[in-house]
């Protein structure tokens, strides 16, 4: 009896251990994927060309420069983003500033040059379209890892397939999303978002990526909304890491007067 108990307990412990081992590895995968997608380098900048194509083939264009800085260089946490718009013409000189936080709402500002107006933007709904594209604010600045429960579904030849289910289902349209993460580089290759009926309605695809300064970097990505048929393509050019962007850039001072040497490069 006692012997059997020991065996059962050992088995149980073994099961527990293997489960935690498994869980840890999925956590590591998404942690690394999140790092590659949003935290490369201590800071970075890129020029982005955005093409929004609707179901009738009409296209709209955006172009902007993104500056990003990781606040805590030891852990992937708070970040600051500065987005300077060049296109469309009526948005030229408009700036979008985000202080991304790990708890509570992000701090967000917009600057409108024609009015010299610094407007505070409610940080609540991050699942709103970014400048009319199929990318959401959350896609641009990242989603908290703790917002979802992650599970490794399977491992294919070159990718981990991870399922993420939101902890709080209110405020998000998806019931889950499934990400394909490159095994070697940990760069996300594809993410499919499922609606409450279990159907895919939104697909992110990493169409092209390269190593930049030794870091896996997206060059062309797309986001397709299957409900509307609208697809957005982003092309990142002139990606640079460790530019040494000063913290002060992410302040009202540089909303009103853009740091041109960082933006025009």
């Amino acid at each position: 009896m006692r012997k059997r108990l020991i065996i059962v307990h050992t088995l149980w412990l073994f099961l527990l251990l293997s489960m935690t081992g498994y869980a840890q590895s999925v956590d590591q995968i998404i942690k690394k994927a999140n790092h590659v997608a949003y935290y490369n380098g201590k800071d970075g900048r890129a020029k982005v060309q955005m093409l929004i194509k609707d179901s009738q083939g009409r296209s709209r264009k955006r172009s902007f420069t993104i500056l990003r800085k990781n606040i805590n260089t030891n852990a992937d946490g708070e970040q600051k983003f500065y987005v300077y718009f060049n296109r469309p013409t009526d948005m030229q000189g408009t700036v979008f500033l985000v202080w991304k936080k790990m708890e509570g709402d992000d701090d967000r500002w917009m600057y409108f040059p024609a009015l010299d107006l610094v407007k505070r933007i409610a940080g609540g709904d991050k699942r709103t379209s970014f400048v009319g594209s199929t990318f959401l604010y959350e896609d641009v600045s990242g989603r908290r890892l703790s917002a979802d429960k992650h599970k490794l579904l399977k491992t294919t030849g070159d990718a981990y397939v991870v399922e993420s289910v939101p902890v709080d289902k209110s405020g998000v349209k998806f019931s889950k999303y499934i990400a394909h993460v490159d095994k070697k580089s940990f760069i996300p290759l594809k993410i499919e978002y499922y609606n409450s009926k279990g159907k895919v309605y939104r697909i992110y695809e990493n169409k092209k990526w390269e190593m930049v300064q030794g870091k896996p970097t997206v060059i062309i990505s797309s986001m397709k909304d299957l409900d509307t048929g609208v697809e957005t393509y982003n092309r990142y050019t002139d990606v640079e890491y460790d530019v040494n962007i000063d913290d002060s850039i992410f302040s009202e001072r540089y909303l009103r007067k853009a740091p041109m040497e960082l933006i025009n490069y």
Partner: peptide
């Protein structure tokens, strides 16, 4: 496929001038 992707942005390429300190716009 890669060619197609690049072609998507051909429009941008044409208009992408060299980095310039000048901005001329209006309406």
């Amino acid at each position: 496929q890669n060619d197609d992707l690049e072609n998507l942005f051909a429009d941008f390429e044409e208009e992408e001038e060299e980095v310039s300190p000048y901005v001329i716009k209006g309406f």
